[in-house]
């Protein structure tokens, strides 16, 4: 055990370097491509388990419950606001010019969901209208 410690800040040295993490290619995968192409057409696509019928949004190749390959793609309907937060500050503690509402948008009869930027009155469970298809979705509560 070291009993001799340096207590004077100006006597300390530090070594600064850069950790390279800025460039990386993430493979979308089969279902990722189908999903993003669907978004371009204004559709939210999910994929249904052939065994239990669970529909995953975004679509997934396999069912985590049954561990079988999922089957058909289906269009998810009935979007609603499951939960939300109003963000006032960014990660550096700076106040945002305008608070940003981020919500988790789910779809009736489906598992999963997507992040959405939310406008309108905030109430968990409210149905929403999708104004813009992207990540995040842009939605307005009804």
């Amino acid at each position: 055990m070291s009993w001799d410690k340096i207590s004077k800040e100006t006597s300390l040295l530090s070594w600064k370097d850069v950790m390279e993490v800025e460039s990386y290619v993430y493979t979308l995968g089969v279902d990722g491509e189908v999903f993003l192409n669907g978004l371009k057409e204004g559709k939210i696509l999910g994929r249904k388990c052939t065994k239990c019928g669970r529909i995953y949004v975004p679509p997934r190749m396999y069912c985590e419950d049954c561990f079988v390959e999922n089957g058909e793609y289906v269009e998810a309907k009935g979007p609603y606001l499951d939960t939300f937060t109003i963000i006032y500050e960014d990660d550096e503690g700076r106040r945002l010019e305008k608070p940003l509402v981020i919500g988790l948008i789910r779809f009736r009869g489906c598992s999963g969901g997507l992040l959405g930027s939310v406008q309108g009155e905030l109430k968990a469970g409210s149905e929403v209208e999708i104004m813009e298809y992207g990540i995040p979705l842009r939605v307005k509560t009804k």
Binding site: Y26, T83, I87, I102, G103, L115
Partner: peptide
Amino acid sequence: DPIYVRSAKVPNIHFVAALDATKFLS
């Protein structure tokens, strides 16, 4: 998740906990 979450560029890292907390309070 880089495709469905990080790409949304949410400006505060605590947002998932906040979504969880709002749901808890609801």
